[in-house]
Nucleic acid binder design. Structure first.
Lengths: 220, 220
DNA sequence: TTTGCTAGTTACAGGGATGTAAGTAGCGCT
DNA sequence: AGCGCTACTTACATCCCTGTAACTAGCAAA
């Protein structure tokens, strides 16, 4: 198998000749689902009609029937992936605003969303592949504003308030750290001599959280 | 043009029918050069024999003549890229050890190497594409040890020494930040409302440096 | 100058990917 | 029941990419 791309043999589906007929919407969703998974795991270049068709259990022209062309499928997949990301982030943010979550808890929730759901990988793929508008306008600023508000609230009286950009950059750094963990965490841990340490990731996560706490909510 | 992969039309080279004959070594180098560039810009999946051949100015079977197969070319390209990275990092480190560079200067030099030379992109591509051994064993630990030594040197007398893992994690965080800047810096800046601010990257870099200084070399 | 080695060329074969054409079958509606 | 719509299928056309075969030409050594 090639290093650059995953070639799977286009095996015929066996036996069952019963044709299943979904609604157009269901079919689109099933196809998008499979395609997003491939996007996350192996990047946009590995989105091949025959593969996705096999995942879903249809023939590849069925995909073209619903999406017109691979190009349009890819666009729909990207939009779908970003929509999911935005939905989850929105959920995390509003949830954080409702409860009295600390700044660091917000960042931890963001980490969860980006890392485990595979969104970090998709963002990285899209950025590397040159899809420009991978992150929508001002979302990071909104996050930073929420965090900054909390920061000002918990400010010990008498001390001068931190600048907004300090909070903004802290959020950017946190994002870089989260993305970095998701993308190169494993190999970096290897390179740091922590490869065989099973709870090194958790320890780093805690360490990072403590650093951010110290930065955002310094003891008075 | 597709989002997932870059398709360039295979234009015939014009006019000059004079055949140039390099030594085998020169040819290999020229081919590797072009291939590394493509790896950096568009990822391993976009390494296509015809494209690289056109870049170098030969026909595509010439590449197969020197490398045997696309697979072997790809392996050679990866090895070449990692070798360059290691060479440059080694240079940075030994240079830092020779001069009396501060911890942050070391990290800045690493940033320079990873970001501007395009190594960050290559590392990300390889990690995302599933090439496992993208980072060699213990390099990060070596860096951290150099940094930690400096940290202990500049320790104000009487204060208790920091743990090594604190320094190690700081280096990991710095690496994540550097990688993050190289990979998603632009779109993250957009999302932070700093898209039209030309010296936002420099400001973030300074902010990060100050943070690391504070962490590694606290004022006594 | 001739001869040998090999870097390089053109032409073509084979496989895999996208996309098209024409027909089939599931399901709702009358 | 049967009619129509359309989700889906099979078969095929086409293009691109890798790899092979046979030949060509630059350069060095005799």
């Amino acid at each position: 198998m090639s290093i650059g791309d995953v070639r799977l043999s286009d095996t015929k589906k066996s036996g069952g000749k019963k044709r299943i007929r979904r609604t157009a919407e269901e079919a689109r969703q099933a196809i998008l689902e499979a395609a997003v998974e491939r996007l996350r795991d192996s990047g946009p270049a590995s989105i091949r009609l025959a593969d996705i068709a096999r995942d879903v259990g249809v023939s590849h022209p069925a995909i073209l029937h619903h999406f017109g062309s691979r190009e349009e499928l890819l666009a729909a997949v990207v939009q779908e992936a970003l929509e999911r990301l935005h939905l989850e982030l929105f959920h995390v943010l509003t949830h954080a605003e409702a409860s009295e979550a600390s700044s660091v808890e917000i960042l931890n929730a963001m980490a969860e969303t980006l890392e485990t759901a595979g969104h970090a990988r998709i963002i990285a793929w899209l950025n590397l592949s040159g899809v420009v508008d991978a992150v929508d306008k001002d979302r990071m600023r909104l996050v930073a504003e929420v965090v900054h508000a909390r920061r000002l609230e918990s400010l010990p009286p008498g001390s001068k308030p931190p600048e907004f950009e300090d909070t903004l950059f802290t959020c950017v750094l946190a994002t870089h750290a989260i993305m970095g963990e998701a993308l190169i965490g494993a190999s970096l841990r290897q390179s740091a001599g922590l490869g065989d340490d099973p709870d090194a990731p958790a320890r780093f996560r805690r360490w990072l959280a403590r650093l951010l706490v110290q930065k955002l909510e310094p003891p008075s």
